[in-house]
């Protein structure tokens, strides 16, 4: 009898602590949620601006988005967001939030900006867990490597050249880290190929209640 009572009291105490802890967390979450979302948004906006500067477009790519689901080419089994830049209604560039699924430590999130003519406006890394000091040279704050993609396209270099140098291609690897750049080169190449064959659909207006993933009838 006494044992049962003891256990009940302990359980209630534990429960009380769990509820208090959860309550505190809910409050903190509530207090910081908006600020965190704003931070994420600002970071994204800054990167989008770097890739396609305001002088080259007159719309807001952040609100002109569409989503595509293409696990093979874009590396993610979830829908991938595409930000579209336009000028006077004409498509300028698509910034595709692709994923390099085979980094040294898992997935590498990318923003691949492709101009309408198929050349790259630039590539940036948004999220990664590569080795500090080795694989993290893909960040612009650590090295200029990722800027090497600027103005490249499917014909420049030729498809055989879309590899790191060690594999006979044209892109540098880092000392001590080949897996990371290899994964990114492959992901950018796949994204470019996907862009080439889906260019028009990618710039199709998504407004007017068009659900992501819905087929476009008049295409």
């Amino acid at each position: 009898m006494n044992l049962a009572r003891n256990m009940t009291v302990s359980a209630i105490l534990l429960g009380a602590f769990a509820i208090t802890g959860t309550g505190l967390l809910a409050l903190t979450h509530q207090a910081t949620r908006e600020r965190i979302a704003q931070n994420e948004r600002e970071l994204l906006l800054r990167t989008l601006n770097e890739l396609v500067p305001g002088t080259e477009r007159d719309n807001d790519p952040y609100s002109d988005i569409t989503q595509v689901l293409e696990p093979g080419a874009l590396g993610s089994d979830k829908p991938v967001t595409v930000y579209r830049a336009r000028k006077e209604g004409q498509p300028v560039a698509a910034i595709i939030n692709a994923v390099a699924p085979d980094g040294y430590s898992g997935r590498i999130g990318l923003l691949v900006a492709v101009r309408y003519d198929g050349t790259l406006a630039g590539v940036r890394v948004t999220a990664h867990r590569e080795t500090p000091g080795l694989g993290d040279a893909i960040e612009t704050s650590r090295s200029d490597w990722i800027l090497g993609f600027d103005d490249k396209s499917l014909d420049n270099p030729r498809p055989r050249g879309w590899r790191v140098k060690r594999d006979g291609g044209e892109f540098d690897q880092f000392t001590g880290a080949t897996v990371t750049p290899r994964a990114i080169v492959r992901a950018v190449f796949n994204t470019l190929r996907y862009f080439e064959s889906n260019r028009e659909a990618m710039f199709a207006p998504a407004q007017g209640g068009q659900e992501p993933g819905e087929t476009i009838d008049d295409a």
């Binding site: 602590f17 802890g21 903190t28 994420e40």
Partner: peptide
Amino acid sequence: MIIASVVTAIELAMNAYFH
């Protein structure tokens, strides 16, 4: 539970103020 709650709260705060 106490430690986990404290750390998660700090994590959220850092995410908000030292992004």
